[in-house]
Amino acid sequence: MEQTMIHHDSHYDPEASKIGMWLFIFTELLLFGGLFIIYSVYRFMNPDAFHLAAKELDTTIGAINTIILLVSSMTVAMATSAIQNKNIKLTQILLGITVVLAIVFLVNKYFEWSAKFDHGIFPGSEHLINDMSKGEILFFGLYFVMTGLHALHIIIGMAFIIFVMVFVAKKKVHPERYALLENSGLYWHLVDVIWIFLFPLFYLIT
């Protein structure tokens, strides 16, 4: 009895945690997948309007954000290797870089959206309703919903990683117990994968 009292580690099963995270990622795939299907059907029905509207988007800022997300995905993946190598300091640095890159991404997004707002392009704006075709309204509606939902995922992923950093600092996440860190990485890679598809569909295919 005494033995079991001393042993007070809570149940820990990294493989089950990982499966749980993957199942959650599958539900996210359904969420964004549905939006991607809506996008492709409307694009199929209004090819010219989508072509015209996509020209409004800034490829450079989209490309910069793509690189930022790819690099941040690498740093968070490296953080898992770092904690496995028992290098806590490097783990924290790599997670910190990921958070900073996430903030840079959001700042870029802010400037990008501000530029659109300045041109009178935002959901329900007069310029959109009076001067644009139905297809263009659809394009910008999808653009704001999908990149907005993606930005929300960036914010959640960032909060998740900060949470993990606190846990690493408190030694609740350590080289023997790092499933939480790995799962935050999985979530972050999901956000990256969504952007990998958003970027060509909205910014490149004009």
Binding site: S73, M74, A77, G185, L186, H189, D192, V193, I196, F197, F199, P200, L201, L204, I205
Partner: peptide, 17 residues
């Protein structure tokens, strides 16, 4: 563009994830 995005996704899933 979609094929290249799929290749990138494959790389992320295989190595990063």
């Amino acid at each position: 563009a979609l094929i290249l995005a799929s290749v990138k996704t494959f790389l992320v899933l295989t190595f990063f994830m």
